[in-house]
Amino acid sequence: MPTCREVSRAVAAGEVEVAGVWRRIGIRLHLLLCRHCRRYAAQLRALGEAAGQALSEEAEDRARIARLCDAILGDSPPADDLEPEPEIPPAQEGGRPAPRTPESRSGSDLEPGCKKPAASRTHGT
């Protein structure tokens, strides 16, 4: 069975998932029996989860994202001068085909992260 040093190393370096079968079994068995290594592994997991949560909350700042999108795409010619819109219309979630007016098509197939905060989406409405 691997030692605590080996187990903690494998856990921190993310080697457990890619290890061979026997090594993985050895590590699992060690973790089952050793509360120190178990705590170590749990703490690293908590660390990863906390980092993920903190950052995904920050990235929710839609206004900042929209501003950046504008800055990057702003100097590309407006959509009307470009090639036709993608021929395949975006899936209609509501089942109601939106009329393809200039207003409606500008944002129709954007991914959620980059949509401009339209008037109806701003806080407090």
Partner: peptide, 21 residues
């Protein structure tokens, strides 16, 4: 242009988050 725009719009939030990360 439409493809580049879509790529930008799709991945910009992730890239920004990674830069912060």
């Amino acid at each position: 242009p439409a493809t580049l725009r879509r790529v930008t719009e799709k991945y910009l939030p992730q890239v920004l988050r990674a830069a912060r990360g």
